[in-house]
């Protein structure tokens, strides 16, 4: 997957979690926590959805790297480069 595809995949996960939010205005540089008020349970959800959908395993010490869209895509790019979209 390319970074653009990874971004779309993460967006799809976020849309599933926060179904009432309009994510078209999401700012990639700002923390999810601030924009969407996701709590720690919701972060666990992002991790679990990635595992469920793409079999990507993210160790707990890396969770902080999923803070914003930009950092998430950057972190996932090497992990997901061999996965087909």
């Amino acid at each position: 997957m390319t970074p653009v595809e990874i971004r779309a995949a993460v967006l799809d996960i976020l849309e599933g979690i926060a179904q009432d939010d309009d994510l078209s205005q999401l700012d990639d540089g700002t923390a999810f926590r601030e924009q969407l008020e996701l709590d720690s349970m919701d972060f666990l959800d992002i991790v679990m959805e990635l595992r469920k959908r793409y079999r990507v395993q993210i160790p707990e010490e890396d969770y902080p790297r999923l803070g914003s869209m930009a950092s998430t895509v950057e972190y996932l790019t090497p992990l997901m480069k061999d996965i087909s979209a």
Partner: peptide, 20 residues
């Protein structure tokens, strides 16, 4: 109300993947 992000109702909707 719809759009509220905090509190148990918002949390359970997210966790269950329901819309408000």
């Amino acid at each position: 109300p719809r759009g509220t992000k905090k509190g148990p109702l918002a949390r359970l909707l997210r966790q269950l993947r329901f819309r408000w």
